[in-house]
Amino acid sequence: MSEEPLVRWDWIGRNWPTIQGLLADHIVMALVPIVIGLLIALPLGLAGVRWRWLYQPTVGVMNVIYSLPSLAVFIVLIPVTGLATRLTVMVPLTFYAMAVLIPAVVDGLGSVPDHVRQSAVAMGFTPLRRLLQVELPIAVPVVLAGLRVATVASVSLVSVGALVGRGGLGYLFIDGWQRQFYTPIVVGIVLVVVLAGVADLLLILAQRLLTPWSRARGSA
């Protein structure tokens, strides 16, 4: 065992198709919940801004959900969604994403300066157009900051799903542990971190594209 190198490159070469499959599975299970979470968080966040009294209870519930351990939730869901299915992992991750994104949407819309909103009203923007063309674009940096946190967390959390039979790259940790073999574990850790990094970079890029004015002003 002491002779065993941390990484056996030939193992990676031989198992590359399997690793690719796990990577693809991982990407789907990490990112679909983020997309769905955002789609749900946007209307809920808007409702929280429109009806202020709704916001505190929503955040309270989301805080409770966020504090539930992922492994525990996966297990409680097994009787409903089945062992080793993608759904068992993706449903809790969707809720975690919402827990991060709803406050981000509310804070983002709250960051719209009052004079900007009033200018839009004075220019004759209807409420819907004001939302789509003025308020949401200004909220983008705050929402994207939340999106970055949620995405990185999601990518990392999927691997815990390996304990209930469906964890994308997390399978490599279980495999390496059971065979007392470093290489799959190292490969898994590196790929998860790289995947999170790439997703994060794409979101930073999206922010640059969506908020051209921050570049024009010369402040990133």
Partner: peptide
């Protein structure tokens, strides 16, 4: 933040 705890744990224990 992206470090998967499970992977880190099994690697360190090994």
């Amino acid at each position: 933040r992206a470090l998967p705890t499970l992977g880190l744990l099994v690697l360190i224990v090994l």
